[in-house]
Structure formats: C-alpha cells, structure tokens
Amino acid sequence: MAHATVEWTDNLEGAFELTALLRLIADEMRLRSTGVFPVGGIRVRAIRLSDYVIADGAGPDDAFINIDVKMGVGRSEAFRKAFFDQLFAAVKDFLGDLFERRPLALSMYVEEAEGWKHNSIHRRFGGQG
C-alpha cells in the first residue's frame, strides 16, 4: 500500500499540470520503489482546496501544495529516507520555476498506517486479492 493525496490551493489553477504531477508520483512509486510498493496498491489523488488561509492571509498569491503519503508498516528507515528524499526532489523539479513566479510552499508528510483493505486489483499483477 502506498497512497498519496495531493492538496493544492485553487489559486494555482493552470499554473502546473495536475494530472502530470499525479502520474509522476504514481510512476515514482511504481518504478523507483524496487517493488517495495505493490503496484496494485498504489493510489494517487488530488484535492483542490478553495477554503484556506496561508501565513497572515494578506497575500492573495500565496499558495501551497501538500503531499500526504500513507504506506503500510514495515519499510526500512533507509528505504523511507532514500525513496522520499528522491520523490520530494522529483516533485520540486517538476514544479520548476513556479517557486520563482509566485509565493509557494511545498510540503510532504509520510505516515506508516495499519488498515483493513480488500483489493482484487492485485490479481492483474499476479498477487492475491
């Protein structure tokens, strides 16, 4: 399991390619995790935020993108550090000069989660449901 939720402020509409960002995160999880994240358990979604206050609330161009990642327990500290350092760098690179064009905060938080799930998608990849 690796689920990512990208929250982004609506004043960024049109400033970056949202679908491409979601695909980038999914591809990183699928291709660069060296099998640590089962492909059938990867989920990446976005939530457009229209109600928010940033800093003192006085900067109408202030914006943020936050990425929350939940993954199953058991990944090593070394894997988590290397993988998420690389993922964060890839997202920063993807956003390019957006940080120079406007006030923008980017954050990413990673959480190990224990949960209950039933997933028949794994069968497409040779795993159990």
Rank of each mutant, 00 (worst) to 15 (best):
I47V: 14
S33I: 06
E112A: 14
F16P: 15
T9W: 10
G41K: 00
F64A: 11
R102C: 01
L21H: 03
A90Y: 05
F79D: 13
H3K: 08
R80E: 12
F94I: 10
A90P: 03
A15R: 12
F83N: 11
W8E: 09
S107H: 01
A90F: 11
E100D: 13
D97L: 14
G57D: 06
R32M: 08
A26F: 09
A26H: 14
N11E: 11
E114W: 12
L31A: 10
D56R: 02
F79Y: 15
F99L: 02
L95G: 00
Q128A: 12
W116C: 02
F83R: 13
P60W: 05
F37W: 11
M1K: 06
R48W: 02
L24W: 09
S50P: 01
L12E: 03
R124W: 07
H122M: 00
L22V: 08
R43M: 05
L95A: 03
K70G: 14
A55C: 06
E112N: 09
E111L: 07
D85Y: 12
A4L: 14
N66C: 05
T5K: 11
A89T: 10
D51H: 07
H122T: 00
Y52V: 09
D10K: 10
A55Q: 08
G35L: 02
L21P: 02
P38V: 09
F94R: 13
F84L: 01
V36N: 10
A2P: 15
A63S: 13
P103C: 05
E13P: 00
Y52H: 09
A113N: 08
L24Y: 10
K70M: 10
G115C: 12
E111C: 06
G35M: 03
D93N: 14
L24S: 07
A20S: 10
E28Q: 14
G57V: 09
F64I: 05
G57W: 05
N119F: 01
A63W: 04
I65P: 07
Q128V: 06
D51E: 06
T5E: 11
D27S: 15
V39W: 00
H118K: 00
L87Y: 05
E100L: 07
M29I: 00
R102L: 01
A2Q: 03
N66G: 10
H3Q: 13
H3V: 13
R101G: 11
G40I: 04
G74A: 02
E17I: 07
S120I: 11
S33Y: 03
A26M: 05
K81V: 13
L12W: 07
R48K: 15
Q86R: 12
F64T: 04
F79W: 15
I65F: 06
E114I: 08
E13W: 05
E111I: 03
K92I: 00
